[in-house]
Every structure is written in C-alpha cells, then in structure tokens.
Amino acid sequence: MDGVQTLADRRCNVAEHHIPTEHGIVIARQWQPQNRSRTTAAPLILLHDSLGCIDLWRELPERLAVATGRKVIAYDRAGFGRSDLLHDRPAPDFVTRGASAELATVLDALGIEDFAVLGHSVGGGMALAAGAVFGARCRAVVTISAQSFLEDLTRAGIRKAAEDFADPQLKARLERYHGARTDWVLDAWIGSWLSPAFDTWCLDAEIAQITSPVLTIHGALDDYGSPAQPHRIAQMAKVPVNSLLLADAGHFPHRSHEARTLKAIIGFLARPLQP
C-alpha cells in the first residue's frame, strides 16, 4: 500500500492509496469519521457499478462514515476511474473474481480483516460473491440494484444504453471520470453482458454460501433488473435477508431516494449482529 494523499474534509479524514494488484495500480480512498477517532466496527467497503468509480459515489461514502462511525473505503476497480488501464475484456467470471482476488488484495493492502460490503448494480453482485468467498470475515452484505441472474430486462436495458452512448455528448460525460479507459469501460459492460458467455450467468451458488445477514435495496422501476432480483436473493440465501423495495425508484435509489436508502443501510448496520 502506498498512501499518497490525505485530503482535508469537514467531517472525515480522507486518505487515498495506490495499491499494486495483478492488473496494475488500483486507486482506493478511505473516509475516517472525525467524530470517532477509534472504532471497533468493521470497515464498510463500497463496490461500484459497471460504469462507476470512486467519484461517482459522490457524497455517499462520507455520509455513511459519519452516520455509522465506520471507516468507509471505495476503490476504482482495475480499468475504471483512475486505476490502471486494461485492454482485454473481463472474463465471464469477472463478478466472482472481482469479489475475490482484487478485493482480497485491497483488504490486505489496507490491513483489513473483518469488513462489511456494499455494492451497487454489478457491484451488488460482487458484494454477494464476497459474502460467499470471505465467509465470517464479511460481517454484512448490502446490495443496491444488484443483479444476481440474467433477465431479458437486463439485456434490453444494456442495448438501450449502447444506443444512448453513441451520442458523443453522453460519452464525453463518462470520459470525465474514466478518460482513456472509457471505451474499455463501455465494452466491459456492454460487450460482456451481451456475450453468449453470459447466457446462463447467475449467482445462486454464491448466495447460498453467504453466512452474514443481507440487506437488498431495489427500485421497482429499475431498467436493468426487475423485483425478481431481490426476490431471488431472498429465496436462495440461507441467512436472514432484509429487503427494501422502492415502488417509484429506478436503478440509482441511493441518489433518487437518498434519505430512505441511507436510513435502511444505517439501521441495518447498527444491529447487534453487525459488530
């Protein structure tokens, strides 16, 4: 781990790190709430979506850190944001790989043993896989708009997005966050999920192995996954699953319904089973 920058913040001390991985340098950022100089609660790891990065979490990491008293850590997965550029399309098992090898490297670099994990969209799938891979080390799993199996709706939404990103202005907005990585980021999402290699993709086996409590948050108007997604998670899990289904939310409830989303996450993480 190479801590390269400490940023001033009103409510958190924010440190940024460059972490060597098998796929190059990964950028991580850590929020330590100033109102808790020392906390025994497990840090919360954030896993971004298919077009995401640290900066696209906006103010959520700081708000979670302050509200929960936990360290919150987000990182740009390899190929995204400011992490090193990749060239090859991710392998069909990239969701479980992202929840194992890369996450393990980040945890080791930051000296983290036990943790809680929160993921959005494909990051939610990675959060579920992390719950399976890390067992008791993963103390809680939170998903927002997670995909755990492939629906026709998922691919229809991605095809529509592919058409939308033909607009140079929309693509330019994405380039503000990913720069020279943008074409790879788009193909890693669109090309991967529309590939025949993904036809039978699901996380049923991983969900059944999770040993920690789970919270799912989902919008009923999500263009990339119907309410069948959180229902499937609850059906396949062998642990308690708390669910929040927002009737008028789409794919980003942590933005459109921030207060309700934060309340659900904070309450869930405050329970006695979340040390």
Score class of each variant (00 low, 15 high):
residue 106 V to H: 04
residue 107 L to P: 11
residue 107 L to I: 12
residue 107 L to G: 11
residue 107 L to M: 13
residue 107 L to W: 09
residue 108 D to S: 15
residue 108 D to M: 06
residue 108 D to E: 15
residue 108 D to Q: 15
residue 108 D to Y: 00
residue 108 D to K: 14
residue 108 D to A: 15
residue 109 A to P: 11
residue 109 A to Q: 10
residue 110 L to P: 12
residue 110 L to R: 10
residue 110 L to H: 09
residue 110 L to I: 14
residue 110 L to C: 12
residue 110 L to G: 13
residue 110 L to Y: 10
residue 110 L to T: 12
residue 111 G to F: 11
residue 111 G to C: 13
residue 111 G to S: 13
residue 111 G to T: 13
residue 112 I to H: 11
residue 112 I to G: 13
residue 112 I to P: 12
residue 112 I to N: 12
residue 113 E to H: 14
residue 113 E to N: 14
residue 113 E to C: 11
residue 113 E to T: 15
residue 113 E to W: 03
residue 114 D to Y: 07
residue 114 D to T: 15
residue 114 D to I: 02
residue 114 D to M: 08
residue 115 F to R: 08
residue 115 F to Y: 14
residue 115 F to A: 12
residue 116 A to W: 01
residue 116 A to G: 13
residue 116 A to C: 15
residue 116 A to K: 00
residue 117 V to Y: 05
residue 117 V to G: 07
residue 117 V to F: 05
residue 117 V to T: 06
residue 118 L to H: 06
residue 118 L to K: 07
residue 118 L to M: 14
residue 119 G to C: 10
residue 119 G to T: 07
residue 119 G to I: 08
residue 120 H to C: 09
residue 120 H to Q: 12
residue 120 H to N: 11
residue 120 H to V: 08
residue 121 S to E: 09
residue 122 V to C: 03
residue 122 V to W: 01
residue 122 V to E: 14
residue 123 G to D: 07
residue 123 G to R: 04
residue 123 G to A: 10
residue 123 G to K: 04
residue 123 G to C: 08
residue 123 G to L: 06
residue 123 G to Y: 08
residue 124 G to K: 04
residue 124 G to Q: 08
residue 124 G to D: 06
residue 124 G to L: 08
residue 125 G to A: 09
residue 125 G to T: 03
residue 126 M to D: 05
residue 126 M to H: 00
residue 126 M to W: 01
residue 127 A to Q: 04
residue 127 A to K: 02
residue 127 A to H: 03
residue 127 A to F: 03
residue 128 L to A: 06
residue 128 L to I: 07
residue 128 L to S: 04
residue 129 A to D: 01
residue 129 A to G: 01
residue 129 A to P: 00
residue 130 A to F: 01
residue 130 A to K: 01
residue 130 A to C: 06
residue 130 A to H: 02
residue 130 A to P: 03
residue 130 A to I: 04
residue 130 A to S: 14
residue 131 G to W: 03
residue 131 G to C: 03
residue 132 A to W: 01
residue 132 A to N: 02
residue 132 A to Q: 02
residue 132 A to E: 07
residue 132 A to Y: 01
residue 133 V to R: 10
residue 133 V to L: 00
residue 133 V to N: 05
residue 133 V to P: 00
residue 134 F to S: 09
residue 134 F to Q: 08
residue 134 F to K: 01
residue 134 F to P: 06
residue 135 G to F: 09
residue 135 G to T: 07
residue 135 G to M: 10
residue 136 A to I: 11
residue 136 A to Y: 05
residue 136 A to R: 14
residue 136 A to N: 14
residue 136 A to K: 14
residue 136 A to T: 15
residue 137 R to I: 08
residue 137 R to V: 07
residue 137 R to L: 13
residue 138 C to L: 06
residue 138 C to H: 05
residue 138 C to T: 08
residue 138 C to S: 08
residue 138 C to I: 09
residue 139 R to Q: 15
residue 139 R to H: 05
residue 139 R to T: 14
residue 139 R to G: 08
residue 139 R to N: 05
residue 140 A to M: 08
residue 140 A to E: 07
residue 140 A to R: 07
residue 140 A to I: 02
residue 140 A to H: 02
residue 140 A to F: 01
residue 140 A to Q: 12
